[in-house]
């Protein structure tokens, strides 16, 4: 997806030059540091075996990263929302408490990978179920003193520094858990960003479902579109899935299609749900 970027100079305001208090504001380039790579993008832990997540500094300068465990809750819109400490429920708190990880802060020169070790220590008598937290990798901005930037003689400058982060889910499954899913209510929607294939993904059972959506036309084995990494977490029984589609794909999608939800190839690749529908 390429986003067109065009710089535009404001023309409208030239005539207004006689404004009163002359505060001039010029934005200086914010220093960008903390470009990062994280792999893998999802961790499922069952049993006592731990794993590793690789963090790599792909920027051109040394950067410090903080690794933390965050709680997110899925909404019926399919978004992951922050959960504050006061809002935590027992399942979420248990997840946070049993996940062990180290180190929690690393300083990496460019192109230096670091393994973050992950493990689980499940408390005795942990009820069966799926427990989940999200591991957040975030670059820590370098402390910048105010004196470092020369204040303009008149007016003000703005320096906005972006801090990038990546979150990946860490899932712990205790006991023998089952889940099924269903697809319904498929339609093509027009929103501000363009067209989107939208449908409801429902889930029943004791764990989340995760996999890829494949949309195929009748008589064709090659999917028209594929979207991987679609989850329905246990806190919701149904979520909306809205997948942006370019106009030429949207045109292809119109008419009868079949929408299928498959497990990822590395966990068997089995079909979770399938629904035939007519899109208009």
């Amino acid at each position: 997806m390429t986003i067109q970027r065009f710089q535009s100079l404001k023309r409208c305001c030239i005539g207004l030059g006689a404004m009163a208090s002359a505060l001039s504001l010029s934005s200086t380039p914010a220093q960008a540091a903390g470009d990062l790579l994280v792999a893998p993008t999802r961790v499922v832990l069952d049993g006592q075996r731990g794993t590793e997540v690789i963090l790599n500094n792909i920027g051109s300068e040394t950067a410090t990263y903080r690794i933390s465990l965050e709680l997110r809750r899925m909404t019926s819109e399919g978004r992951l929302e922050d959960v504050s400490e006061e809002q935590e429920n027992d399942i979420e708190r248990a997840a946070k408490e049993m996940i062990r990880y180290a180190p929690r802060r690393v300083t990496l020169p460019p192109n230096q990978p670091q393994a973050i070790r992950l493990g689980v220590r499940a408390p005795e008598g942990l009820p069966d179920g799926e427990y989940r937290a999200h591991l957040l990798f975030r670059a820590i901005p370098e402390a910048r003193s105010v004196t470092e930037k020369k204040a303009p003689e008149k007016g003000f400058t703005i320096a906005l520094t972006p801090i990038y982060g990546v979150t990946i889910p860490v899932i712990i499954r205790q006991g023998n858990l089952q889940a099924t899913a269903g697809i319904a209510n498929g339609r093509l929607e027009q929103d501000a960003d363009g067209q989107a294939l939208t449908f409801d993904l429902s889930r029943t059972g004791t764990r989340s479902t995760y996999g890829e959506i494949r949309v195929t036309k009748p008589g064709s084995s090659e999917p028209v579109m594929v979207a991987r990494g679609i989850a329905v977490y246990p806190e919701v029984n149904q979520r909306k899935v809205s997948l942006p589609v370019p106009p030429e794909v949207a045109a292809q999608l119109k008419g009868p299609v079949s929408v299928e939800y498959y497990e990822p190839a590395n966990t068997g690749g089995g079909l979770i749900a399938r629904t035939d529908m007519v899109l208009r």
Binding site: S21, L23, T41, R42, R72, M74, L80, H134, L136, R138, P141, R144, V146, K149, K150, A151, P152, K154, G155, F156, T157, I158, A159, L160, T161, P162, I163, Y164, G165, V166, T167, I168, P169, Y210, G229, I230, A231, Y233
Partner: peptide
């Protein structure tokens, strides 16, 4: 209105999340 002169700095977070 009448915003003070000076150099203003701020940070904002941008997060890419996997489900």
């Amino acid at each position: 209105a009448g915003q003070d002169d000076g150099a203003y700095v701020g940070n904002f977070t941008v997060t890419v999340s996997y489900q």
